[in-house]
């Protein structure tokens, strides 16, 4: 460093000559310290996720690691918690239930929202915008209020303690969001698309399915991801509407492990990691949909 800066100080009298001042003027160093700050912050923000994943392999505490050394920590890591989770808990069943409920409910929600969103977005009739606003208002009904009567209604209808019931609840739960989001996309399609199709002898339903839907495939994909996230994350409805261990979904399922007499945090972190990984993968592959969907749908709605 010193040999590099010597000639410059020699040729430029009056320039600041302490090393520190010279460093501050150096753009590369400034950029590096800026980048250092950013990456440092990234590491701090990511630490909880990293710690969760490490803990799923070995739930050693920090003091244990410091006391026994990094070598001991690394050798204490194993897949034991994951094996335990699969073999001696209902995790696989819950995972399956979660996958079924979230995928089926989102698919149904998208089908219903396609027609609903088309209706609000592209057809002109009285009451259209009032219904759109009404959909937004339903988003302000707290779930904690809805769940009390819903529990009673589902019990009376025989939908309590059944995956079908949970799917019905999730379809309605995601519907305002999916409808509102698809409406936004449909609205921006060129005008009179479906009229052209209908002149060619297609029905209104046929026009939606054959013309509008294929054109909005990316929008449907984005909406599907966000709808699926809502259903995959949902906790309260699943907690109240399902009682049977064999029918539970992941969030209330894993949560029970905290209440057990001997809490195995390694096992719990293995569960938390497994719930998270599908989302991380989805995010890695479909990141632009996430960000675009957020900008176009979530923020606007």
């Amino acid at each position: 460093m010193a040999t590099e800066t010597d000639p410059t100080t020699g040729t430029a009298p009056g320039e600041p000559d302490t090393l520190f001042q010279r460093l501050k003027q150096n753009d590369t160093v400034r950029l590096l310290s800026f980048e250092g700050l950013v990456w440092g912050l990234v590491l701090i923000v990511l630490f909880p996720i990293i710690w969760m994943m490490l803990s799923s392999f070995s739930a050693a505490s920090l003091s244990d690691i410091v006391e026994n050394g990094l070598g001991w920590y690394l050798s204490s890591m194993s897949l034991e918690n994951y094996v335990d989770m699969v073999e001696s808990t209902r995790f696989v069943t819950w995972f399956k239930n979660s996958v079924i409920v979230s995928l089926v409910s989102t698919a149904l929600s998208i089908v219903i929202a396609t027609f609903g969103g088309y209706s609000i977005g592209r057809l002109r009739y009285k009451g259209r915008s009032a219904f759109a606003v009404f959909l937004l208002i339903t988003q302000m009904f707290p779930y904690a209020v809805i769940i009390i009567p819903l529990f009673i209604i589902f019990r009376n209808l025989g939908l309590f303690n059944s995956l079908t019931g949970l799917i019905v609840a999730y379809v309605a739960f995601t519907l305002p969001f999916t409808t509102w989001m698809l409406r936004g996309f449909f609205e921006n399609l060129p005008e009179q698309l479906e009229e052209a199709a209908m002149v060619d002898g297609s029905t209104r339903v046929g026009a939606v399915v054959r013309v509008i839907l294929p054109l909005s495939a990316p929008a449907v994909a984005t909406t599907f991801i966000f709808g699926w996230l809502l259903a995959w994350n949902e906790f309260l409805f699943a907690l109240v509407l399902i009682n049977d261990q064999a029918l539970k979904t992941l969030p209330p399922g894993i949560q029970q492990w905290v209440g057990q007499n001997t809490i195995n945090w390694g096992l719990i972190m293995a569960g938390a990691t497994t719930v998270t990984v599908p989302l991380l993968l989805l995010f890695a592959f479909l990141q632009q949909y996430f960000v675009q969907g957020l900008a176009e749908g979530a923020v606007k709605s």
Binding site: I112, A113, F115, G116, Y118, S119, I120, L123, R124, Y125, K126, G127, R128, F131, L135, T138, F141, V145, I146, I147, I148, P149, L150, I152, I153, V168, A169, V171, A172, F173, L175, P176, T179, R204
Partner: peptide, 26 residues
Amino acid sequence: SVWGWVFLLPTIAAIGLVNVYPVIRA
């Protein structure tokens, strides 16, 4: 206008059962 409301029927049914009716009941 006819298709407008026909297309909304499933939405109205689902929201009605799981959102609106429970709130009235609550």
